[in-house]
């Protein structure tokens, strides 16, 4: 029964992710004064990619890269509470496990793209990993403020404590939530932190050598990653409520990120990391300070 429930969740989240992608493309098209593709366009893209023939691969690791990426993101689905439904595998300290699991996917893609022996791919990965030095720390600091306050490291318990609307963590931990939102922008690779896949500079970065079915797998990974990352933020700061409210909240957070994505150019990688270590770091530290004073 658990297996069936998990497959349901997996397919549902993938469809949700692709739906978010389609609506985001329509939304940014509207900002750019045009109509944009049908909302189900991402589904078509994935089907087309999976249907491609004689995809070219550079070796075993190149082929396994997207598979590991997909594994990593499916794994993190196990630990993510969707609204008020308890996740399949929830135990104490699973926020730390989740943080480390969220790293498996980029690492898998990085190993695969490394095998492609293309400098564009490796520069993209070096930028991605350096950016991780920026946003992972900020997200962790903003999450740790909540964890220390409720003295728990279980995502599920934090969701339970928050309950319905007025008791969200957003209001008591406003500073940490704000820093978390900036970190989320980098985690999802939206502009101004869109350095990993900058087409003009490094010809779509790590994806430069991926074609056909591998690219389809990466698109699926990206779709689930959107839901998982926004879901993580929603659970920590906007928790509680039924699955429907969870979907609405993740949708709203993602749309906020996409809107910012449309009005900002890209950082240079040096500027992006320095930006993260300047303002968001101070904001998250203030957030922690607030927790100490307030406790």
């Amino acid at each position: 029964m658990v297996i069936l429930e998990f497959f349901l969740v997996l397919i549902g989240i993938t469809a949700l992710g692709l739906l978010y992608g389609g609506i985001a493309r329509k939304w940014s098209a509207r900002i750019q004064r045009r109509y944009g593709p049908p909302f189900y366009q991402n589904f078509l893209d994935v089907f087309k990619l999976l249907g491609k023939k004689n995809t070219k691969s550079h070796g075993v690791m190149f082929a396994l890269g997207p598979v590991i990426a997909f594994t990593g993101i499916i794994l993190s689905l196990f630990f993510l509470p969707l609204g008020n439904s308890r996740p399949l595998l929830s135990f104490e300290g699973d926020i730390f496990v989740l943080f480390y699991l969220l790293v498996i996917a980029p690492l898998g893609m990085a190993l695969g793209a490394g095998e492609a022996a293309n400098p564009n791919a490796t520069i993209g990965i070096a930028r991605g990993l350096t950016l991780m030095l920026g946003y992972e720390l900020i997200f962790f600091l903003s999450a740790i403020a909540v964890m220390v306050k409720f003295n728990t490291a279980s995502l599920w318990k934090i969701v339970e404590i928050q309950g319905t609307f007025p008791k969200w963590n957003l209001f008591p931990f406003f500073l940490s939530a704000f820093a978390g939102l900036i970190a989320l922008q980098g985690m999802m690779g939206e502009k101004p932190f869109d350095l990993i896949v900058a087409p003009h500079e490094i010809a779509s970065g790590p994806m430069v050598e991926y074609n056909g079915k591998y690219l389809g797998l990466l698109q699926l990974y990206h779709a689930i990653a959107i839901v998982v990352e926004t879901g993580l933020f929603v659970n920590v700061f906007l928790g509680g409520g039924s699955i429907l409210t969870f979907i609405l909240k993740t949708f709203f957070v993602f749309m906020l990120a996409v809107t910012i994505d449309n009005i900002m150019p890209r950082f240079r990688i040096g500027q992006a990391v320095k930006f993260y270590w300047k303002y968001p770091l101070i904001i998250s530290l203030l957030g922690i300070l607030v927790v100490f004073i307030w406790r």
Partner: peptide, 22 residues
């Protein structure tokens, strides 16, 4: 590609590398 004729309505977007292009 851009707002007036907008070929993205037909699902056509410019891709940077031949690997991803049709």
């Amino acid at each position: 590609m851009t707002s007036r004729y907008d070929m993205e309505r037909f699902g056509i977007i410019p891709m940077a590398t031949p690997r991803q292009a049709d």
